[in-house]
């Protein structure tokens, strides 16, 4: 259905603002699955994902009057979803407070800039019997903004500029979020594969 509509056209936006049923149906059918799956990716269960997606749509139509069409509807929607997810998890959007993973990564290097330890073979984890459970537990260590950045980059394949707009962060802050998300996940998975916890 989405292919027959130009969601960015002023005409389509006008129809959405007037609550035209066909326009609403087109946009809801086009993006609900993405919102719901993003909510699952952020660690919500089915009931919570339903609630977060529903709240996102309600907020979208509440604020559509002020939407000028400067960004893509998808960017606008994901931005709302991100705020709803943070509200649900009661997290702030702070990026710069130092986290334990920053120290862990500093300590991974010798003074001369070389790695201290060894890494396990990444292939081992692909065949691990508890792979999904481990991923779920490791993902739960990420904050909403880190998980959202990682989801948008790795799953949705959004470009950095769009992710920065959704999360309302600078490119430098996005780098910090992705650095922490990737290293937290990598460290956690490796510890579990090595049986260290």
């Amino acid at each position: 259905m989405s292919s027959t509509h130009d969601f960015q056209s002023p005409e389509f936006l006008r129809r959405l603002k007037e609550r035209d049923k066909e326009a609403i149906e087109a946009v809801v059918r086009a993006y609900t699955k993405q919102l719901y799956n993003a909510s699952l990716g952020l660690g919500f269960n089915d009931q919570e994902a339903h609630e977060v997606s529903q709240n996102t749509w309600l907020a979208f139509f509440k604020s559509i009057e002020n939407f000028k069409g400067n960004s893509h509807i998808r960017t606008f929607l994901f931005g709302i979803l991100y705020n709803k997810a943070r509200e649900q998890r009661r997290e702030t959007a702070k990026v710069f407070d130092r986290e334990p993973i920053d120290t862990i990564m500093e300590e991974r290097f010798k003074d001369n800039g070389a790695w201290k330890g060894e890494f396990c073979d990444p292939e081992i984890f692909y065949g691990h019997g508890q792979r999904l459970e481990i991923i779920e537990r490791c993902l739960s260590l990420l904050k909403v903004n880190q998980r959202m950045a990682f989801f948008l980059k790795e799953v949705e394949g959004h470009v950095s500029e769009e992710i920065c707009n959704i999360l309302e962060v600078s490119n430098t802050n996005l780098g910090v979020l992705l650095f922490r998300a990737k290293n937290k996940l990598r460290e956690c998975i490796e510890r579990k594969v090595k049986g260290e916890e």
Partner: peptide, 12 residues
């Protein structure tokens, strides 16, 4: 390891 993280997330 970093490259595999996206695969793991998508599988999950």
């Amino acid at each position: 390891h970093l490259n595999s993280l996206g695969d793991h997330f998508r599988t999950y």
